[in-house]
Write a protein that binds this DNA or RNA. Structure first.
Lengths: 339, 339
DNA sequence: CCCGAGAAGTGAAATGTTTCAATTGCGTCC
DNA sequence: GGACGCAATTGAAACATTTCACTTCTCGGG
């Protein structure tokens, strides 16, 4: 494989020392215009592209950050990624997008790779495992931001959304429009987040004093494919016990169920109301626009990156911070028919 | 920032030379079991994580490959990415997913970063610019695979789909179901690919001998957002000149238009038939399942990676190869009503 | 008992950059 | 004219690993 020119060759070609070239490239010191031009010329001549590996070696970081998600196909995560990326680019960093597909083995492998790369930091949108997988990152001193799901006790910053309130909001809305037979449709690895939301939903039922007449069941999709999510519609339409509303773990689930319902001739929202979660861009544009519990995606992404960089900047390392956002309900036609 | 242990420290701790530790880690040479265990123990003790930067420095590649897309929000690209990743992981590589958002400036910045990282190679799913942006990659000898859109004359392998045939297939189908007023709805930067497809579509009209009675107009979305795509529906429903079919540049466009049509009470396929392109997973699960021109996403991704690695493996570098796939039409209910 | 072969382990060189203390050159001020 | 200060430039050390030519050890056959 062809090897590219080195800074030494550039220096020779330009007739200066390699230190000067380095200073020019990095703007470390002032360079006389004439010299600068000769260096510039030599760089172009030799097609010199500096080698990041060496920079990394010299104690600096690699200027890479990791963004780890459990489902790369969910727009919620790609939208987050876009905002993380924007922030990272402003700081001269590249983002490595790691899709673990919910698999712990993959997660470990990715985190290991990121540690070996001496990344500037890692943003994790789900913590599959216990502390164990974070060991490598801690060993190389890479800061961590937990996004969306805090695990207290881990040495990491976090940005969370109040999931209890999220569940509460969605359920209150459904109760207020008269729904009493509700299904909570989660994803394959909802984990603690979903438990918290369901808890919030139950709280709403209690606060409305409707425990007696309301029922809330939970059902989880077995996989992340569209087909597997659409299968949840069978639970909604269970002939023995049909639901009149579905609360979904995320908008993609809501979206799959919504489409499946309509294809079967079920009217939304008249027969079944559907509430999503996240408010991805798509949510407003489905056949029946989706009522959903919004997470502030742009802020979450931007702030996750900021928190990450904040941990490394400055003289001393800053202690990890913890932020909590409050979700809000966005009512659309999947629960309240347009007039 | 904390600095992690080095191989030298591991060697000291284990009471061997650093060369031995290196041999153990890389399996370069056989190591006596007793020694191996001491090394293993020292590594655990010190939480040693090898530094990739130095490996890269020693003339090897960084074991990173770049995957550059114009729209990270389009599932077509995330699905491709997943397959590329699978292939890369098998070879010990990490994929850097670069979303240029169709912006040439960003593309250049990403390609530059990838070159500095001395990536093993780059897969490009759209070539915005002329040869110019590829200069850095060539300078560092990183092989390139063009995926989906060949630009002859560039020093790169390519995997293409026969877009002319794609347009032909979609149009033939529409003609065969009696549609004559057709709109071609493209994306913001369709470029050569879309031109080719429209060309194929026109060929179909000629082959059917329907030039006189058929009209084919093209309209492009101004941006990549769902909203901007949905705005295309106005062109479809133009009161002066309504279309009876829409041929879409990709499934996301089709999907947005489909939803917008149905929300306006237009019947699909009775009033307007919709044909997408790509056959992403979602296409089969929309309210009205989408007729679409399928690209073999899994093969495309897998082969792109394979072509990339093939260029570097072996004694001598292999010359870049070129593959062409043939798309096929998948008929669903957005063009032919279910009985 | 000696020889040779193979296995196991060693350690110095090489990799391409940044950093920093030292050096050079040059104009200015007294 | 000499000293001084500033700007520009230099070059060697440091970074953490891989590689490879050597050395040492062990064991079996003659």
């Amino acid at each position: 494989m062809k090897r590219s020119a080195t800074i030494t060759q550039v220096a020779e070609q330009a007739g200066v020392s390699l230190g000067t070239v380095s200073n020019y490239i990095n703007g470390t010191k002032a360079i006389a215009p004439a010299t600068a031009e000769r260096i510039e010329h030599a760089i172009a001549e030799l097609s010199f592209v500096p080698n990041r590996a060496v920079r990394t070696l010299r104690g600096k970081r690699s200027n890479v950050i990791g963004f780890v998600v459990p489902d790369g196909a969910n727009p919620f995560f790609t939208e987050l990624a876009r905002h993380v990326e924007d922030e990272a680019r402003d700081r001269g960093c590249v983002v490595v997008f790691c899709d673990t597909a919910g698999d712990e083995e993959r997660e470990r492998a990715y985190l290991r790779s990121l540690a070996e790369m001496r990344v500037n930091g890692v943003i994790l949108t789900s913590v599959n495992a216990q502390t164990r997988n974070l060991g490598d990152l801690h060993a190389v001193g890479a800061p961590i931001v937990l996004l969306g799901d805090d695990k207290p006790g881990l040495d990491a910053a976090s940005i969370t959304v109040d999931h209890h309130r999220g569940g509460y909001l969605g359920m209150s809305h459904l109760l207020s429009i008269g729904r009493r037979r509700i299904l909570y449709a989660g994803g394959p690895a909802g984990g603690a987040v979903l438990d918290t939301r369901v808890e919030g939903a139950r709280q709403a039922i209690r606060d409305h004093g409707l425990e007696a007449e309301t029922r809330l069941h939970r059902v989880d999709a077995v996989g992340r494919s569209v087909t597997e999510r659409a299968a949840l519609v069978d639970a909604v339409l269970d002939p023995d016990d049909p639901a009149d509303a579905v609360l979904c773990g995320n908008d993609m689930i809501a979206f799959s169920i919504l489409n499946a319902l309509i294809r079967r001739g079920v009217r939304v929202p008249e027969d079944v109301a559907v509430v999503g979660h996240d408010d991805i861009e798509l949510a407003a544009q489905t056949v029946v626009p989706l009522t959903t519990v919004r997470q502030p995606i742009a802020e979450l992404g931007r702030l996750a990156a900021e928190l990450l960089f904040r941990q490394t900047s400055g003289e001393r390392d800053h202690p990890p911070q913890h932020l909590i956002f409050t979700p809000e309900l966005v009512v659309r036609e999947s629960t309240v028919a347009a007039r």
